[in-house]
Simulated assay, not measured.
Amino acid sequence: MENLDEWVEKLKAVSQKKGSVVVVEGKKDKQKLEKLGIRNIYQIKGKRFYDILEDLENSSYVIMLTDLDKQGEKIFSRLKFILEREGIPVDWFFRQELKKFGIKHVEDIPIRRGDVSKTDNTMS
């Protein structure tokens, strides 16, 4: 993907598909994605892995959007393993693409994105 607008539009489309869930860490992450038009957001803060698995067991597609900091990486690895072990497909493509835009925290995605490209992290 060449810019953040394209990233948001793709995520928006995928999040609206039946059975899709976008997993984020906290309240601010969820609020930011809602402002961007993303649907079916599941916030994991304060929940045990077992409870998360139980909540997501009927999902057909889980998009992992935990933050790209040390804590987010730990949560991502553990939750990805647990979900995949139970046969729940996990997509981390959007998370990987977010790295290319230099954004470490979901809550930091700009609402007015303009053209944030992979090589130039400034907004126009």
Rank of each mutant, 00 (worst) to 15 (best):
R95D: 08
K70V: 15
D5V: 00
D120G: 13
T122C: 12
L36Y: 09
Y42C: 07
I88Q: 09
D120P: 08
T66M: 14
T122Y: 14
D67Q: 11
I111A: 11
A13E: 07
V116L: 15
D69V: 09
L33K: 01
K45T: 13
R112K: 12
L83D: 01
S20I: 01
I44L: 12
G114K: 10
A13I: 04
G114P: 11
F81T: 10
F76D: 07
I52K: 14
E86D: 14
V116E: 06
G87E: 03
V116H: 04
V21P: 02
E9H: 00
E84S: 02
T122V: 15
G19A: 05
L83N: 06
S60P: 05
S117N: 07
K30M: 10
I75E: 03
F94V: 07
N58C: 09
Q96M: 09
D29I: 00
I82M: 13
R48E: 09
I75G: 02
K18A: 12
V106C: 03
K30Y: 12
V22I: 11
I109E: 01
E2V: 02
T119A: 09
Q16S: 11
Y42S: 07
G87S: 06
G87I: 04
V90M: 03
A13P: 00
R39A: 12
G102C: 03
S15T: 03
E107P: 00
I82Q: 05
K12S: 09
R95L: 11
F94E: 02
K17F: 02
K80G: 04
E34R: 10
L4F: 06
H105F: 08
D55C: 11
L11Y: 01
Q96W: 05
N58W: 10
E6P: 12
E57Q: 15
H105I: 06
Y61G: 03
S124K: 08
S15N: 05
S124I: 14
L53I: 08
D51N: 13
F101Q: 00
W7D: 00
G46I: 11
V62W: 05
Q31A: 14
N40E: 15
D67N: 12
V106Y: 03
I44N: 02
M64H: 06
L65A: 05
Q71V: 08
I111W: 08
R85Q: 14
K100W: 04
I63R: 02
L36G: 13
T119E: 13
G37W: 06
K30L: 15
I82F: 11
L68K: 09
N40A: 12
V116M: 15
D29S: 01
F93L: 10
